[in-house]
């Protein structure tokens, strides 16, 4: 199991009869940004907490940095940076005090790198944490996760509270770290941000892995949203090759198309088409397509 940068093998966590995550087998390569996409309650946070040793697996296991990780191992976490989804930092400390404390725990910290992060993300370190806005809190959370230049960065909903400008800066910093060799495990339920930064994405739902795709492959699967307005009665196009979703609203047809567009175009050529819009599908559409394939609504 210990060959990939990080690998889970049939990782399972159950709370009594409730499934947290079931039979999760994933493999991350060094230097990639891996998206972990799913709605709330899909098992994303459970997976992350298993990887960090917060939770004890019911069965299965995982390896990191080429080593099998047993329950209770902790030394490997020196190479991980983690930003939790429900970030809670010691409210009475200032940002300076917090980073100082964490620096003492880590041992060797390159403080000029920390200063660089603080400058880029514009965090007021002199204020007590309880007085910080949610956005500044999240930025401080990002700095504490990156301050020791971790090899593996695990982010749980990292940009939720950030304004678009800071969100862009945060994603830039992550890309830079990726370019310098860091691997990023990026959990989110925001498809847009995963699409912006990730190389591959895993879809999870109901505690199960639905699929893993290269972002580039997903985009090239030619999933497209097509809207057609015709004169008169609109025909049923659901049986045309490549049409995976079909909806009729009076004279307007809404379709989702996978694969080659030729069969649909041939069929449309014979119809009194008034207007046609053809858009590349959003990742969200791929997401729902996955669920449908997995038998979910």
């Amino acid at each position: 199991m210990a060959s990939a940068f990080m690998q889970t093998s049939a990782l399972t966590k159950r709370y009594g009869t409730t499934v947290g995550i079931e039979d999760l087998s994933l493999s991350l390569q060094a230097g990639e940004v891996f998206g972990f996409l799913g709605p709330n309650g899909a098992g994303k946070t459970t997976t992350i907490r298993l990887l960090l040793g917060f939770l004890r697996p019911t069965s299965g296991g995982f390896s990191m940095f080429g080593q099998d990780i047993a329950w209770g191992d902790w030394r490997h976490r020196a190479r991980i940076g983690f930003l939790p989804g429900d970030l809670r930092l010691p409210r009475r400390l200032t940002g300076h005090q917090l980073l100082g404390l964490l620096g003492r725990l880590h041992g060797q910290i390159n403080w000029s790198w920390v200063a660089h992060l603080v400058e880029r993300l514009e965090v007021p370190l002199g204020h007590r944490i309880r007085t910080l806005s949610r956005g500044n809190l999240q930025k401080l959370g990002l700095i504490q996760a990156l301050m020791h230049r971790p090899e593996l960065i695990i982010l749980d909903e990292p940009t939720t509270a950030l304004d678009p400008l800071v969100q862009r800066t945060a994603l830039e910093v992550l890309r830079e770290l990726r370019d310098q060799g860091a691997t990023v495990f990026f959990s989110s339920h925001h498809i847009d941000e995963v699409e912006k930064i990730c190389d591959r994405v895993a879809f999870v739902r109901g505690g199960r892995l639905v699929g893993v795709e290269e972002i580039a492959d997903l985009r090239s699967h030619l999933l497209a949203r097509v809207e057609v307005r015709v004169t008169g009665e609109a025909p049923d196009l659901s049986s045309v090759e490549g049409v995976i979703r079909f909806e009729q609203r009076g004279e307007t047809l809404a379709l989702m198309v996978r694969g080659r567009p030729a069969p649909l175009l041939a069929r449309l050529a014979a119809l009194p088409v008034e207007e046609i819009t053809w858009q590349a599908a959003r990742l969200e559409d791929h997401f729902f397509t996955y669920y449908e394939r997995a038998g979910e609504p």
Binding site: W74, H76, I80
Partner: peptide, 15 residues
């Protein structure tokens, strides 16, 4: 409860 366990145990801090 305070979240300090998350902050500490995500680092090389043994329980």
């Amino acid at each position: 409860e305070s979240g300090e366990a998350d902050l500490l145990l995500s680092r090389a801090v043994p329980r």
